[in-house]
């Protein structure tokens, strides 16, 4: 799969940059495309793009990479560095993140909490979509500790569709987000469960952590000491979930 060629449009989405930027990078030699003649379309080896991300993660915007992946009308697998096709891969990568966080002195007291809320948000992707993924299986999971940022996303059913199974009266994404983060309810009826996001909210409010969570056309922001949930209509509209944790 790594030898697969990507178009310049696909590459731009994967890297979270514009096509114009890629053309500029190609001309300057920063990221070379594959083409036999100058007049031909530019293509990129998937492996080259994966290597580029590995080597240049500090200059790339993880959020844009995840957002582009989640809102794209065509579902394609994210690059392997970010892709968790099943929960065991997610769990292994969470342990890796936990280990990296534990080495940051400033986070000495709260790194288990950051790891725990990341785990709960990530779990939801799998718990609510197992066997029901609309297109791409699994989730996007990446972090940039220099920028103190963790990004999670999935192309699953989203919060509203999941909650509607147990609360059919829900009609919009904003209300669904509010319920998900405040009411004890489960999307896996008849099991009386689903407290992960309430836990996330409580932890964020009590600590120096910010959470941004998108689903459908709604966006939620939670921050320290602000118990009123800030839920707005967002400028993107997509089916799954996208979360950014900043600390």
């Amino acid at each position: 799969m790594n030898s697969k060629l990507l178009t310049i449009g696909q590459t731009a989405k994967l890297l979270g940059v514009s096509i114009q930027t890629l053309r500029r990078w190609d001309d300057s030699g920063r990221l070379s495309s594959v083409r036999r003649k100058a007049a031909e379309h530019r293509y990129y080896f998937k492996k080259d793009i994966e290597d580029y991300i590995k080597n240049n993660i500090k200059e790339l915007d993880l959020f844009k990479i995840a957002r582009n992946w989640v809102v794209d009308s065509l579902g394609v697998e994210p690059l392997s560095d970010f892709h968790c096709p099943d929960i065991s891969v997610f769990q292994a990568r969470l342990t890796k993140l936990e280990n990296e966080l534990s080495k940051i002195k400033k986070l000495n007291k709260i790194f288990p909490l950051i790891s725990a809320i990341t785990g709960e948000i990530g779990n939801n992707s799998f718990d609510h979509n197992l066997g029901n993924w609309p297109d791409v299986l699994g989730s996007f999971f990446g972090w940039d500790l220099a920028k103190k940022k963790i990004v999670l996303a999935d192309r699953g059913q989203g919060v509203l569709a999941t909650l509607k199974k147990v609360k059919p009266e829900l009609t919009n994404h904003k209300d669904a987000l509010w319920v998900a983060f405040t009411e004890v309810v489960s999307g896996r009826a008849p099991e009386y469960r689903g407290n992960g996001l309430k836990f996330v909210k409580d932890v964020v409010i009590a600590n120096k952590i910010n959470l941004f969570f998108w689903t459908g056309d709604a966006c939620l922001k939670i921050q320290k000491n602000v118990s009123n949930l800030d839920i707005k209509k967002s400028d993107i509209n997509f089916r799954g979930c996208l979360a950014v944790i900043k600390f």
């Binding site: 969470l94 936990e98 288990p112 725990a116 779990n123 718990d127 469960r193 407290n195 992960g196």
Partner: peptide
């Protein structure tokens, strides 16, 4: 134990 979450605990 380093990371403990409600989903596992439940």
């Amino acid at each position: 134990v380093v990371t403990f979450t409600p989903s596992w605990a439940d």
